[in-house]
Structure formats: structure tokens, C-alpha cells
Amino acid sequence: MNEQSRPRESTPQEPSDRERMETELATRLPPLLFTVAVFSLSILSNLESQNTTVDEFLAIFAALCLISAALLVDSLLDKLKLTFNDRFFLLHGGYLLFSASVSSAIPLLAVLYLYGSDFLSASSAENSTNLTITFAVFGATAASMFWKMMTLDIRNISFMALLTSAFASIAWLYHLRLICVAGGATS
């Protein structure tokens, strides 16, 4: 058989040192970040004095840990070029549930924060509107987080949506804190 007509065997390319390091970090950091998030939420729920900014710092820190862990896992799946369908059935639907749980944890942080303040105890039409806006803003953050985790984000559109909604969420919580302080409530 002629050497030119024989099909060439393709050898798998060895991953570079950088790729190996990124893979190691992306697989080892998320559990650590989840642990730090749980630890900071535990401290947040046990704070007796709710009139400091420590509770806000811990809530934002926990959210950043959750988002960082999710983005690390997502980066590996983006490198593998897994589509929505691939991710939907990844680990027999386990990745879908992981994405949903991480995404839904972000609005739950807002609920935890608002529950710790006196904001939820006051009842008024303005309070109802503020709660609706709060859940809309944090719902957008959760939706963009889920979208980022479940899709192949080549152009970073979902990442930009996530950043925008996360900053809007933080700004909205700061606005609510100002309302609580102005109304005499402690947060």
C-alpha cells in the first residue's frame, strides 16, 4: 500500500502546562469557594447587631464566592465547547440542577439580607413596590447566571448580562439600605 494513500493517524495533542493548571484550579477551587460562602452565610445569620455593614459585606462576599465557583466550572465546559443540550444532559441532568441551585441561591441571599433588616416588617405600598423590584432585579441576576452556566458563551454576552445584573442588584440593595436608615429602621 502506498504511503500517501494510507490515512494518517491523529495523535491527541498533549495539554499545555497552562491548560493543566487551569483545569486543576477549575476543579479544586469551586468546593473551596462554596465552603467559604457557607461559612460567611453562617456568620451572617448569627450576627446579633444588624446595624453595621458587616452583614452587607458577608452577603456580597458569599454571592461572589458562588458566582466565582460557577464561572470556574462554566469555563471548563466552554473550553470543551459543550452546547446547551450537552450541558442539559451532562451528569444525567445533575449539571442542570447544579446550575439551577447556584442561580437560585443569589436571590435567596437578598431574602436573607432583607429578612435580617427591619425592611420586611414594615408594610406599605412603597414597601410592596420595593420588594417587587428587588425580586425582579435579583431574578434577572439569577436568570443571567443560569444562562451563563448553561450556554456556550463565545462572545461573553451572558457574562456581561451577569455583571450588569449583579451590579444592579448590589446598587438596589444599597438603595434599600438607605430607605431603611432614612425610615429609622436598622439594617
Rank of each mutant, 00 (worst) to 15 (best):
M160L: 06
R87I: 03
M160D: 01
M149R: 07
I106C: 05
L77V: 08
F159N: 13
L163V: 11
C65V: 15
A142K: 05
T141G: 10
G93H: 01
C65T: 14
S128L: 07
E126H: 14
S75Q: 07
L77Q: 02
S121G: 04
L97P: 00
T129W: 14
A161F: 03
A136L: 15
M145E: 09
F146A: 12
I133A: 08
N127Q: 14
S104Y: 07
D118S: 09
G139A: 05
L109G: 01
L66E: 08
S104A: 13
T134A: 09
S165A: 12
S165D: 08
I157W: 07
S121M: 11
S117A: 14
L163D: 02
L120S: 01
G93F: 00
K81F: 11
T134G: 00
V73R: 05
G94D: 02
A100E: 00
M149F: 12
S123Q: 12
A122T: 15
L96F: 11
I154H: 02
M149E: 07
G116L: 02
G93Y: 01
F135E: 03
M149C: 09
L162K: 08
A140W: 04
L120N: 02
L163E: 03
K79I: 12
S101E: 08
S123T: 10
T164F: 09
Y95W: 06
E126G: 13
F89P: 00
V73S: 05
G94R: 01
A122I: 14
K79N: 11
S68L: 12
V102I: 15
G139E: 10
A125T: 13
L97R: 14
L163F: 03
S144V: 04
T134M: 05
V73M: 10
S123Y: 15
N127Y: 00
F84W: 03
N156Y: 10
G94A: 07
K148P: 04
S101P: 02
S117N: 13
K79M: 09
F138Q: 08
L90T: 04
Y113T: 05
